[in-house]
Deep mutational scan, measured.
Amino acid sequence: CHSECLGNCSQPDDPTKCVACRNFYLDGRCVETCPPPYYHFQDWRCVNFSFCQDLHHKCKNSRRQGCHQYVIHNNKCIPECPSGYTMNSSNLLCTPCLGPCPKVCHLLEGEKTIDSVTSAQELRGCTVINGSLIINIRGGNNLAAELEANLGLIEEISGYLKIRRSYALVSLSFFRKLRLIRGETLEIGNYSFYALDNQNLRQLWDWSKHNLTITQGKLFFHYNPKLCLSEIHKMEEVSGTKGRQERNDIALKTNGDQASCENELLKFSYIRTSFDKILLRWEPYWPPDFRDLLGFMLFYKEAPYQNVTEFDGQDACGSNSWTVVDIDPPLRSNDPKSQNHPGWLMRGLKPWTQYAIFVKTLVTFSDERRTYGAKSDIIYVQTDATNPSVPLDPISVSNSSSQIILKWKPPSDPNGNITHYLVFWERQAEDSELFELDYCLKGLKLPSRTWSPPFESEDSQKHNQSEYEDSAGECCSCPKTDSQILKELEESSFRKTFEDYLHNVVFVPRKT
């Protein structure tokens, strides 16, 4: 048989008469490798580009789960590009990614509803959504962080984005990388972005840091009482949809009607710091009717980097990364020049730590249904340095008659930039024990000054392991946590139920 035959053949030295091919099969003959313009397919066939392209389009058009959109890589027609490569849609070739590779997620039936953290986790790592997304989240724990972890990498949506009755959302900033909504599939009414009845939605994105392009379709905003109209108009300008909307697409009466839409800028007039305090004062603000001013709200939190936005980490279910302080308005003076500047002394802060701070007014709604208010920009203030805590785990070892090696770990709280350490030492008198000992005694162990690591005695271990207080009263049991108490109650309830079950099964009433 021919060298490319495997198993047997019907005619000697003829690659077209093989029972099976050793390498690849091409047009009725066995070959060692697939010549151009053919590609290896499933490690035994040679196919042309049209064959591989037909497989790709067949799966793409069917949208069946589990099928493969075949691509070409290293002269092979394979189910998908290997790690580190992405497909070129024009020629199906796998090309190296520039940075992290995109991950295209194809949605069944063309859309997916995100109504819980669990459903959001199914899209973790996706960068391109081939379909439409509907966000409908009523509640949950730590929602802002969970949504950002699972949806934060999405850069492109081919269909539309719909935010509907998501009472738990305060902001859409968890879509931190969303840059493009194509609108290839539109919501009824030709809408590519749809926001309806979101009672706590206050911000779409921080438009000073976020760009969003909507290729096709219109915007729809109705019944978002805490979303200011200025935020919607800003989205029109940034996304390129200005002029597409009709009169009733953006409701003037049901958007922002319960919001404090600040239209003035508060400026800080005085800032002073110490290692654990920050004193702030800002310019006074009074609405047209000074009785509408209820006070100020001061927001602050630790910020290692200057990239904080107002609604980071917030949701309507209680999660809030900001510390909020309510401040009463100052006494009002008739003389504008003698107006008191409101302020606040922030206490209990960490030394040498940068804080993000902003302040906003708290006002009631005027009778004319106009909203007044003022808010400052987010500023960054760093507390002063102070003395560091003591170095940890000092170790001293003498390696000769004239040297001592000293080692330690950095302090747990540096409280500033540590530039150097101060080492103090003092000579001590020799131990009298060394002169009084009889060095001729056998088995004498000389006193040693070398360091030995501390260890816990058996008594201390027994005390720590004991669940009861000892007789001397030195140790006591740790208080039980809520989960331990709940577990004990469940076990007790189970024992009672099981005992009742045994009584009912074992003891049967005697027939009379």
Rank of each mutant, 00 (worst) to 15 (best):
C105E: 00
L108F: 04
L108N: 14
G110R: 04
G110P: 06
T113P: 13
D115F: 04
A120S: 08
A120C: 14
A120D: 01
L123D: 00
R124H: 15
C126M: 01
V128K: 08
L133V: 13
I134E: 15
I135V: 13
R138K: 07
G139L: 14
G139C: 01
G140H: 15
L143H: 03
A145L: 12
N150R: 06
N150V: 04
N150H: 11
N150D: 07
G152D: 09
L153T: 14
L153M: 06
E155M: 03
E156D: 02
I157P: 00
S158I: 11
S158C: 10
G159D: 01
G159V: 00
L161F: 07
I163F: 14
R164P: 04
S166L: 04
Y167M: 15
S173A: 11
S173H: 14
S173W: 11
F175A: 15
R176I: 08
K177S: 12
R179Y: 10
L180W: 15
G183R: 01
G183K: 01
L186P: 04
I188A: 14
N190A: 09
Y191V: 08
F193G: 01
A195G: 13
A195M: 09
A195V: 06
N198K: 00
N200S: 07
L201N: 00
Q203A: 15
D206M: 06
W207A: 05
K209V: 09
H210Y: 08
N211D: 08
N211K: 13
N211G: 12
L212F: 04
T213P: 04
I214V: 11
T215P: 15
Q216A: 04
K218P: 12
L219S: 08
F220V: 02
F220W: 08
F220A: 12
F221L: 13
H222L: 15
H222E: 15
K226P: 01
L227V: 03
L227R: 00
C228I: 05
L229M: 02
E231K: 11
H233R: 06
K234V: 11
E236P: 01
V238W: 13
S239G: 05
T241Q: 07
T241R: 11
T241I: 09
K242W: 15
R244D: 05
Q245L: 05
E246Y: 08
N248P: 12
N248S: 13
D249S: 10
A251D: 06
A251I: 03
K253T: 08
K253V: 10
K253C: 08
K253D: 03
N255P: 03
G256Y: 06
G256R: 05
D257G: 13
Q258F: 04
A259W: 14
S260A: 09
L265Q: 07
L266V: 06
L266P: 00
K267T: 08
K267I: 14
T273H: 11
S274L: 08
S274C: 10
D276G: 15
L279H: 13
R281Y: 14
W286V: 06
W286R: 07
P287H: 12
P287V: 10
P288H: 03
D289Y: 05
F290K: 03
R291F: 05
R291L: 05
D292Y: 06
L294H: 11
L294P: 14
L298G: 14
E302V: 05
P304R: 14
Q306E: 12
N307M: 05
N307P: 08
T309F: 11
D312M: 15
D312N: 03
D312I: 13
G313Y: 05
Q314R: 15
D315R: 15
D315E: 02
C317D: 02
G318A: 05
S319V: 10
S319N: 07
S321P: 07
W322T: 01
W322C: 00
W322H: 05
T323S: 10
T323Y: 03
V324I: 02
V324A: 11
D326R: 02
D328A: 03
P330G: 03
L331H: 08
S333P: 08
S333H: 15
N334Q: 12
P336T: 04
K337S: 09
S338L: 08
S338P: 10
G343S: 10
W344F: 13
M346I: 14
R347T: 13
G348F: 13
L349I: 05
K350L: 09
P351E: 01
P351R: 08
T353K: 14
T353W: 04
T353V: 13
Q354S: 05
Q354R: 05
Y355M: 02
Y355L: 01
F358M: 07
F358I: 12
F358C: 00
T361G: 06
T361F: 15
F365H: 03
D367F: 08
D367S: 06
D367N: 04
R369Y: 07
R370P: 08
T371A: 05
G373N: 08
S376F: 00
Y380P: 00
V381L: 14
V381C: 15
Q382S: 07
T383E: 00
D384A: 14
A385M: 14
T386S: 09
P388T: 01
P388H: 01
V390S: 06
P391M: 03
L392D: 04
L392K: 15
P394D: 03
V397F: 14
V397Q: 08
S398M: 03
N399S: 08
S400L: 13
S401P: 04
Q403Y: 10
W408T: 01
K409T: 04
K409R: 13
P410S: 15
P410K: 03
P410A: 15
P411W: 01
